[in-house]
Design a binder for these strands. Structure first.
Lengths: 207, 207
DNA sequence: TAGATTGTTAATCGATTAACAATC
DNA sequence: TAGATTGTTAATCGATTAACAATC
């Protein structure tokens, strides 16, 4: 079914999803979606086309079927477990955040070297464990995604550990750039760079 | 001086900067930079070319001058003040993080509607104030960047307030999509989407 | 001179947009 | 039939890569 979908399209699917969920109508046209989301209407049509079966001229796309197709493409129904390395403020904030389950990612626990932080139970019942136990935990709980929220100096070490216990995708929130073997996915989320980029654009915008 | 630099190039400059800072040599070639950062060497050359004066055949680029040029392009020496709306876990984590100053962004304070959170002093001396005072604070402290870390339902309200008090760039960490007037910059940093995207790529990678 | 490295011009690639034919 | 909307083919655009000439 859902063969090659471009990364650009894949990146927009959640936008469509969120928008479609908020609508009440039975059918919706690409024109309306495009206007609301401030995208080109042909672009929307191409995206939807890559994802689902045909829409109907004059009517548009069936909203519910569209939602199902997108969920299917994103693999939302497929639940994946994740853990966080580093229970500092950022790590704990992520552990506590509820918005990930909606996309089928379940953050199970966090790990930290500081014994004072360990065994803490958060409001949602999740737990912080000792970093020593991370490998065993990952292996026995089928963890597929590792989230790195440790300081830069420890990031590569933690990353290597994660790879050893079969983690296939890494979300790197540290400023370190990571060495990984082929086949492992890394997504860098460098917040300082991101804010810095905004600032640079702002400054250059003024001139 | 630094006229039109493409967004793609601008986005890579911090990578170069960080790498160059770690080196010890006087001169460095685009070939070496490319190899280390896993970029095409022509790409590196084009980027550097857009940013600084010419390198020298057989020698490469003077490291220090290169660093200065990049800092200049990024506008790092120009300090800009920011505030955070929302002092939940994420907002507090950002307020507490030290990595932003390196790029010339100074997060001054956070604001929250919950009186219990207000007047808290963090380790670094920064403070959380009542949301009621946000407008006055922004006006009297020349705040240029607003960071939105409130729940989705409040994001648009806070955003409008920010625009009223002359904030020109918004870093939106909420999942809301914001309506802003022309001329205001918005950068959406939707962490749930980002992790979801990684998961989707991972699933599609397996097949 | 030979070799390493630079900068430039043309080709390629992926994504978006424009133009238009097809269909309910 | 007319009109709204779809899907497709070609054109454009921006970014990257390839090929190559220039230079210390």
């Amino acid at each position: 079914m859902s063969y090659k979908i471009s990364k650009a399209t894949l990146g927009r699917l959640p936008m469509y999803l969120e928008f479609l969920k908020r609508q009440k109508v039975e059918n919706i046209s690409s024109t309306q979606i495009a206007k609301q989301l401030e995208l080109g209407e042909v672009l929307v049509r191409k995206d939807l086309n890559a994802v689902c079966d045909q829409g109907k001229p004059k009517i548009g796309y069936n909203r519910e079927r569209l939602i199902d197709s997108i969920l299917d493409c994103l693999g939302v129904e497929r639940k994946v477990s994740a853990i966080i390395a580093g229970a500092g403020k950022l790590g704990t904030a992520l552990l506590d955040y509820k918005g990930f389950t909606e996309f089928g990612v379940d953050i199970k626990a966090a790990f930290d070297i500081d014994p004072k932080k360990c065994s803490e139970h958060l409001s949602n019942g999740k737990c912080i464990y000792s970093m020593d136990t991370i490998e065993e935990y990952c292996r026995s709980n089928d963890i597929k995604i590792g989230i790195i929220a440790v300081p830069q100096s420890e990031a590569q070490d933690v990353c290597s550990k994660m790879i050893q216990c079969n983690i296939k995708a890494i979300w790197n929130l540290s400023p370190a750039s990571l060495d990984v073997p082929e086949g492992t996915l890394v997504k860098n989320e460098n917040l300082a760079l991101s804010l810095s980029f905004l600032k640079t654009c702002m400054i250059r915008n003024e001139e």
